[in-house]
Design a protein around this nucleic acid. Sequence first.
DNA 1: TGGATTTGACCGTG
DNA 2: CACGGTCAAATCCA
Length: 309
Amino acid sequence: MESITWPENLLNDRKKAIHELLRGREFTNQLGAMLRGPLPAGGSVSAEDLLVKIMGSFRNTISILDSSESDEVSQIPASSRRLDSPCRDGRKSEDSGQSSKTSAFKDRRGCYKRRKNSHTSTKLTPNLIDDGHAWRKYGQKVILNAKHPRNYFRCTHKFDQGCQATKQVQMTEAEPAMYKTTYHGFHTCKNPLKASQIILDSTHPASDSSYLLCFNSDRIQKSSDHHSLYPHLVKQEHKQNFPMSDYLMSPDLTTIDSPGPMTVLSPGSDHGDVISSGVYSCTASTHSSFGMDMMGSVDFDDDVFQFDF
DNA sequence: TGGATTTGACCGTG
DNA sequence: CACGGTCAAATCCA
């Protein structure tokens, strides 16, 4: 019988995805136990924490599988294109210890695949802002018909944690000058910031925070009755190309996660949530001392919704 | 000295 | 073939 041989990086991604799913299952079990039984006195983990962890686990898994899929696609033509192709994800061979830092490395140049279907979001800000992630600049390019060069950044944890997030920053020609930041992909690295910190930061207009929003099922909604961290109101300000009757925004738009491109995950059609492209505003209030207002446009692609500010 | 940035070269895509 | 995204050696800097 033939056995499937996985490329090393795909094998690693598969292991990571399985690990993330196992984590998610564990957190779900904990949440289930919390919902069934009496809350443990002085428990250190709240249902809210577990919910965030579960969603983070799903998000990481999706990101891993998403990047694996594109890697797999890009490797097929690469391997058939050139035998002994040195292309390898992560460029780990830098520490191969060999002194072949000349031709072998030059052969590796251009071994990438342009992102065609990765998730992107674009933001326009009056100044350069800190979005809470560690970025490392890896390139700068003069763009045709653009007055200012475009700067390319990748996540600092690209190699140590395999984070595939990148962003491009370009100053616009408009007056006053604005910075257009385009994010590609999701952060799969561990973020040092806590959700609460990000929310607090978001009260500042210049903050570059963005959030992962998820629509809850009824079950999770019940579980959050006594933990109302969630935004409680989502309304559509105006729509593009859709009549008002075409949409219904679920009021239980929830959960806040790491900074980066804002993404809204739908729970599936059986929950009756229908979302249309358009511009939405979102007001979030909590039992704690802060609240936030957000507004942006929603683009949807299958079950993943991109929320651009 | 190690990590970050700069910058010219390389290469895939349209 | 032009353009844009990425690579990687050289350079900078704390």
